[in-house]
């Protein structure tokens, strides 16, 4: 039996693991990290950011001890303020040795539209760049609640447009571009794919949607059931939409892509879905909506997993499998 973690009372947000972990049939390796999982108090943005920043600082100290992947160049860049938008920092990952022009992926980090920086998904982006042999561009999009919809959505679409315009200078074949993201980043990728279709933007090779936030209606069985799952639960899900949603001139489905009136003509999709995640059913429904609209879908549902498991426990076999699925899918989509 797992022991409750004593002595953490004076640090109220450093521990979430108080149950015995047996209420769900977790994958064993994913269960093993739960006693070390830091609970993000999503109902308190300032505290949530403090806790996440603390953890990330420790993580960056750990990364600094590791050798950098010599096969990938990592550069920071800023898209200067334009009409109605602020400076937009971006991070560009480029394979160090390349002979021809490459495909590219625009990748959006997660964090419920409220948290997260370019550092969150740096390891994943480096992995993609090295294994897929593609350029990866990731924007430090603006966060809610200070900047609700459509700030992040605009920043993400802007990054895609910038890459389409400037890609040739980076050695990118702008005919081979994918969008992708994890969690809220996955929701942003799905919205960006819709807008690219609607505005006759770039013809996307793939939308890579990892455990995406897609539906603000909160009416699925998985959302009702998973009220105490690690990393993401129905409570954080509800709080997220309250932070993010706002009136705008855009159609509502650009904020919550499941609300779209039509799924016709969208980019082919790769969906990764975690079984024990309130977001599970909206991803399955989205996949079905795409298929019904004749959009090609590759979907993986990983049994025994919780939200963003490959982010929190990349060493686990099932995470390695999920990451390999992502690399395979991107490789196939971005092939010349």
């Amino acid at each position: 039996m797992a022991a409750e973690v004593e002595g953490a009372a004076h640090k109220p947000h450093t521990s979430t693991f108080t149950g015995n972990g047996l209420q769900y049939n977790y994958d064993a390796e994913l269960a093993a990290v739960l006693p070390f999982n830091v609970k993000i108090p999503f109902d308190n943005v300032a505290e949530a950011r403090r806790v996440e920043a603390e953890g990330m600082a420790e993580q960056l100290r750990a990364r600094a001890e590791l050798p950098k992947d010599p096969n990938v160049l990592v550069q920071d860049h800023v898209l200067p303020a334009a009409a109605g938008s602020a400076d937009l920092p971006i991070r560009i990952y480029t394979p160090a040795r390349r002979t021809t022009s490459l495909g590219a992926l625009v990748f959006f980090h997660g964090g419920g539209y409220v948290l997260g920086t370019l550092d969150n998904e740096e390891l994943r982006c480096v992995h993609y760049a090295a294994r897929v042999n593609c350029v990866v561009v990731s924007p430090d999009y603006r966060l809610a609640p200070e900047h609700p919809f459509p700030a992040a959505f605009d920043d993400c679409y802007r990054t895609l447009c910038w890459l389409t315009g400037e890609g040739a200078h980076l050695g990118v074949d702008v005919g081979r571009i994918a969008v992708g993201g994890i969690s809220s980043g996955g929701g942003l990728a799905a919205s960006v794919a819709q807008r690219a279709r609607d505005e006759h933007g770039p013809d996307l090779a793939l939308q890579l949607l990892l455990y995406p936030t897609l539906d603000s209606r909160l009416r699925t069985v998985s959302n009702a059931r998973f009220t105490d799952t690690p990393l993401w639960d129905a409570h954080s899900n509800r709080a997220m939409w309250e932070y993010y949603l706002a009136e705008s001139d855009y159609p509502a489905w650009y904020a919550a892509p499941a609300l779209a009136e039509s799924f016709e003509g969208l980019a082919p999709a790769m969906l990764a879905v975690a079984e024990l995640d309130p977001l599970r059913d909206e991803a399955l429904e989205y996949a079905l909506a795409l298929l019904k609209a004749n959009v090609s879908v590759e979907m993986h549902l990983y049994a025994g997993t919780y939200h963003a498991f490959d982010y929190i426990a990349p060493f686990a076999q099932i995470s390695q499998r999920a990451l390999a699925d992502q690399v395979n899918s991107l490789t196939k989509a971005l092939r010349s």
Binding site: F17, E29, A32
Partner: peptide, 15 residues
Amino acid sequence: VRVIAAFDQLVAHRA
């Protein structure tokens, strides 16, 4: 305490 809990989880989830 956390280490012990982690290995208990592995056993409980049939690693």
